[in-house]
Design a binder for these strands. Structure first.
Lengths: 114, 114
DNA sequence: TTACTATATAATAATTTACTTATATATTCA
DNA sequence: TGAATATATAAGTAAATTATTATATAGTAA
């Protein structure tokens, strides 16, 4: 179910989630590409547990999905989430972040398995 | 100047600001009505300093303006702020919050000075 | 099997946030 | 002028958030 209006409590909760540069960038990237944890670790140059914890928060409210592919776990946007259209209104206004993936490709560390 | 795209850092900062139920509701109300501090105090049933501090954060980034009218200080949306259109995309998706003002009017505590 | 890689989770520490209490300033009104 | 009202700010505190370190689990590959 897609909402055109979001209760104020839910909206505040979602905006707080997006109000972090790491998570916001993740969401922008995931809107167009699936990504595995180790790629995010490289993109954000932070620790793996930190990335996992950010992803967990996004997953806990159903904004993203996870799926194992071989040894990797790929995250993807959950476009059937009831708040996806709300989220989309925000991320559509953000500049493209796919240069991060380009950088991984150039370094040869982009994971394109399965 | 109105931006159609907002840098990711700025966007995260703005979303964090909006990611609080009190501030988000304030912004939704201010988008259609000016409001003074004591009205917010009554609406949110919290302390006056707490309200002032929330308003200060919104004012510090230029999202709202303040203006003294007699003994009251009225806050209003700064619609010429460069991030207003970004903000608007968010608050347009929120349910109307003007019932709060209706309640004040019914109680006779709505301030309509000057 | 053993070693290695990828990921999650738990525990902890550091930082940030939001609220409260106390107080200062500005305005109005008697 | 003095009292009352409206607001801002400072200081302190409690709660929430984020990152780190340590460790556990699961898959892969020798």
């Amino acid at each position: 179910m897609i909402k055109t209006q979001v209760e104020i409590d839910k909206a505040a909760m979602l905006l707080k989630l997006l109000g972090d540069k790491t998570r916001l960038t993740m969401m922008k990237i995931l809107d167009t590409h699936d990504c595995c944890v180790c790629e995010f670790v490289e993109i954000f140059k932070t620790s793996q547990p930190s990335i996992s914890q950010h992803l967990r928060k996004l997953r806990d409210v159903g904004l993203v999905k996870e799926e194992r592919r071989g040894q990797w776990i790929f995250y993807s946007m959950n476009k059937s989430n009831e708040y996806y259209s709300f989220i989309q209104q925000v991320i559509n206004q953000l500049p493209d972040q796919n240069y991060h993936l380009k950088e991984l490709e150039e370094k040869g560390t982009r994971i394109t398995c399965c």
